[in-house]
Design a protein around this nucleic acid. Structure first.
Lengths: 233, 233
DNA sequence: AAGTGGTCTAGACCACCTC
DNA sequence: AGGTGGTCTAGACCACTTG
């Protein structure tokens, strides 16, 4: 053995990953204890621990106290999506963002929204419908419910000037966010709001956010035909 | 101050997060150095470092050597999707999975596939078209290209019995995976393959994987109407 | 009950990047 | 050039969980 160099945790991670890739350890197999790996690599146990943490987060490996570390038998494709603030997203594409408030008013939330936010009882919230435009063409239509109990300030924000999307993101960080993605066939309402053909396939991005146990907002974002979500860099 | 208890890194993380949530530090603001925070919390610097690592991964905070730690000015919604092996996904819903190989043959890859895999030159790959069924009803249609240069064994796998999806996942771990999501309007081919109506809105999941710099596979998975992708727990 | 990963500490040095 | 986060170590103790 006799390594001249000390190993970094990324090297340790890659070596362990490599032994999984080359079938030294197969899905379901148990890996050696951290301490033994550390000795065999000639590094500290915490370095192996750091490497294992990364492999575990990637879903490559599963760790349990006393149970040891095993190669995941059923790997999943783990994809991380970054959904930026709409204005930023449009500007990042080199286009000009504009924004139009369609309507806002207090309304009782539909059951679907209540369920998505985990609320048992019906409740009134501020409903905000708005359209984001890129270079003056419709880009995303937002149908949003904001919980006025959790975020009373929203009632005094000038939503003609600043989108609820942006105001919330800058003023109301959340502690939890659920996302739901699906395809939707444009109906006559979508066609009117987004200037698309009835029957076009649209990607819908639904999000619900909370601060602690309190609901903040639930949004249904309807994107233009051709819109794509990409992972990674 | 005088804490009786030692702080865990999660408590440190939550306290720092809390100071961001309650506007002690606003987006764009610089946080104190790790060492100072550690002293003020009465813990070791590495504990603060661990907490900051978590906040940084969540996209709440940005860290730079010498530049210090700042609250992210433009937060993104960071969502992690787990896309399981199709058979598992169906079984997890309590349904019976079955699978039908439609065709496989060596073909030159279209430009779109070559581009998705980052390949400059055209190349022949194994094309596999297959249908996954849940309780005998179509569930996902897979149009897949497998690189026979990277994965020569695929040519000898009995793809009538085991789906390429499953074989690859269990035998060919990848080091990189790109995902692309969008909505697609069913054409007559989709209608025939999935038994849906022409014009239905379908969610498409495209994935490309590599091992090191070598392409493994590129898949276009067409889902049934109503299919949804959800994040997190 | 014992073994394994998880955490915390204290200190040292390194690498990057802004100032 | 100096300050900041990033990493590594060595050791101790803890918490979970399985045999």
């Amino acid at each position: 053995m006799s390594e001249g160099e000390r190993l970094s945790w990324t090297e340790v991670r890659d070596r362990i990953h490599g032994m999984i890739l080359d079938s030294t350890y197969m899905p379901g197999d148990k890996l050696p204890r951290d301490e033994d790996l550390a000795r065999s690599f000639g590094c500290a146990r915490s370095t192996v621990h750091r490497a294992m943490g990364a492999l575990s987060e990637s879903g490559i490996v599963e760790r349990r106290r006393k149970g040891g570390t095993t190669v995941r038998a059923d790997p999943v494709t783990r994809a991380t999506l970054d959904i930026p603030v709409t204005r930023r997203e449009i500007e990042a594409k080199g286009m000009v963002h504009s924004y139009r408030l369609i309507q806002k008013s207090m309304q009782m939330i539909p059951d679907a929204v209540a369920e998505g936010l985990g609320l048992p009882a019906p409740r009134a919230m501020l409903r905000v419908e708005a359209l984001h435009l890129a270079d003056s063409a419709p880009y995303i239509f937002e149908d949003r419910w904001v919980c006025a109990q959790t975020v009373p300030e929203i009632l005094h924000v000038d939503l003609e000037r600043e989108s609820a999307n942006e105001w919330l993101v800058h003023n109301r960080p959340y502690s939890r966010c659920d996302v739901r993605l699906y395809a939707h066939k444009a109906d006559h309402k979508d066609a009117a709001r987004l200037s698309v053909e009835i029957g076009d396939a649209l990607l819908i991005i639904e999000r619900a956010t909370w601060i602690g146990a309190n609901p903040i907002t639930s949004v249904r974002a309807t994107t233009m035909p051709g819109y794509q979500l990409l992972t990674g860099s």
